[in-house]
Design a protein around this nucleic acid. Sequence first.
DNA 1: CTGAAAGCGCTAACAT
DNA 2: ATGTTAGCGCTTTCAG
Lengths: 333, 333
Amino acid sequence: MIQSRITLSEISKALNVSISTVSKSLSNSTEISAHTKKRVQEFAKQCNYVPNNFAVSFRKGSSNTIGLVIPNILNPFYAKVLVGIENYLDKYGYKLITSISDETIEKETKSLSKMAGGYIDGLIICVSKETELKSNYNHINELINQGTPVVMFDRICETLNCDKVIIDDYKAAYDATEHLIKDKGCKHIIITSLIDDMHHGKLRVEGFKDAMKAHNLEANTGVLVAGTAEELKQKLETKLKMDTSIDAIFGVNEQAVLQSIHTTRQLKSQGLNKHIKIAGFCNQCQADYNPMLIIVNQNAKEIGVEAAKLILNRIKKTTKKGFQTKTVEVYLT
Amino acid sequence: MIQSRITLSEISKALNVSISTVSKSLSNSTEISAHTKKRVQEFAKQCNYVPNNFAVSFRKGSSNTIGLVIPNILNPFYAKVLVGIENYLDKYGYKLITSISDETIEKETKSLSKMAGGYIDGLIICVSKETELKSNYNHINELINQGTPVVMFDRICETLNCDKVIIDDYKAAYDATEHLIKDKGCKHIIITSLIDDMHHGKLRVEGFKDAMKAHNLEANTGVLVAGTAEELKQKLETKLKMDTSIDAIFGVNEQAVLQSIHTTRQLKSQGLNKHIKIAGFCNQCQADYNPMLIIVNQNAKEIGVEAAKLILNRIKKTTKKGFQTKTVEVYLT
DNA sequence: CTGAAAGCGCTAACAT
DNA sequence: ATGTTAGCGCTTTCAG
């Protein structure tokens, strides 16, 4: 690496000017005459001059790079958040370095320590499941104490000193449930969850329950919680066979929605004749080309954009305000 | 940033030793006595010492960072490749910096120039559609000429001086088609493609045609090519209604497979009674929970791993050999 | 308007 | 076994 790259000093020699003149010319400083600037700039271009990023970052003490840590890139929710962040940062000349935690605190910590040491100007993170369950935020706090601005999204920790971006999980679930009841005429709705150990998972179930109660419908018997997709499938099958009055399933997360679709589709091919509506939190259901679904669009890209905005504001010190929690609007699709 | 971070010099003062003693101790050099090493290491840990990555990279002239440029992170094929790369690099202490080209040559070029300037030790790239169609590889050549090792995958350019990773598109399509014919008893297979302008798209169609011919089946009338998913849908509907003998659809890419599933499913709900088998190149169909699909598993993760291997070998100069093109095995699922 | 020089934090070659 | 020192490429005072 750094093989044939030309440096300021070489340019300065070739042009018989000082290094600082070259440096200033290339940054278009007003201190330098138009003539010299032009000469230097043209020569630099000719030689394919590219500044050594490390020297620059080292000298300036900042890298124009934001770190992103997400649990899983195969989940389209996170992929979309990434796209939102990337687009925004790109506009402002910032680079993005991404790490995947695979839902483990170990990989997460490792990533953070790699990113520490001046590698990043700021961190955007959705913590791993393990991190949230264990409530262990030391690795993040270390970065914060080091002075690196942090933005958490989706899975947040109230007590950390950083900005946060979330959606109103409770309200989203409430609204979607109400939509099933009022607009779709459903009365026997059950809810499926594979993330009932997570905070936002619980919030969504609460939203569902309260919406049901508000319409005098029974909610408690229809909560199907499982640890694995397979387990959920079993429970769902049993439930659907036992209670044929069920007319809708609400899925609390990506996998729960997909599994619900799958299971009902399978039961149908086995002769179940009833049409069961499906709704829920899902970011890849356009892939399924199923227009009948009612999807809570989490607006993932927007979450990304908001997170990126917050972090840049913090870095550029545009905001002096205390840390804020931004709630991104969601909508039904 | 870099607020309260402690430096080697500060440690050296605190401990009354020289900077180089500290440096050597922390890198566990044999030159230093066990006692001193221990003293320094413990103190450093206590102070939460983190080396300044930029100073290190700057000094050493290398960054332990690989750049990755892909067209679209929402396509699970690329997402899986990323995961493969990330896992492998992580094992060897390398970081990954990712950029999305959105299938445009402009964003791609921009990303590369940001990554130039010593920011990365090597580049792994799947070029944008535009890049391939225009056959414009200047931006990549520039990096190569600068001395940065490059690995291309999936969409490659034969003439570039770099390692490459591909799958045998022709063979994969041939085998899948043959599987439909021999094992599934299909005789009237049509093929759908949304990437017939791309090289690997054409190869796949060739594989399909040749397999059909080898079994004395008519192939040419069953090639459905389109520029958009919507257009494909129209053509497919027309075709399926016109020719009721069709018993299988082969999708050449992600979207073509999904659209084929969708369209047949829709026709079915409209009364079409025939079962049409679907096969093709797809990386997200587990999401669809449809066990009847025949999927060409592109082994995306493996492609990522191979690409990562190649780039690290090049960087560490393990390989002195000329540039190689690695073909990753695929299999039917 | 241009140049000289210091120094960012670290590594490694070279003393001692 | 430890210390001294030069210098990576760049920006940025400060002097001319």
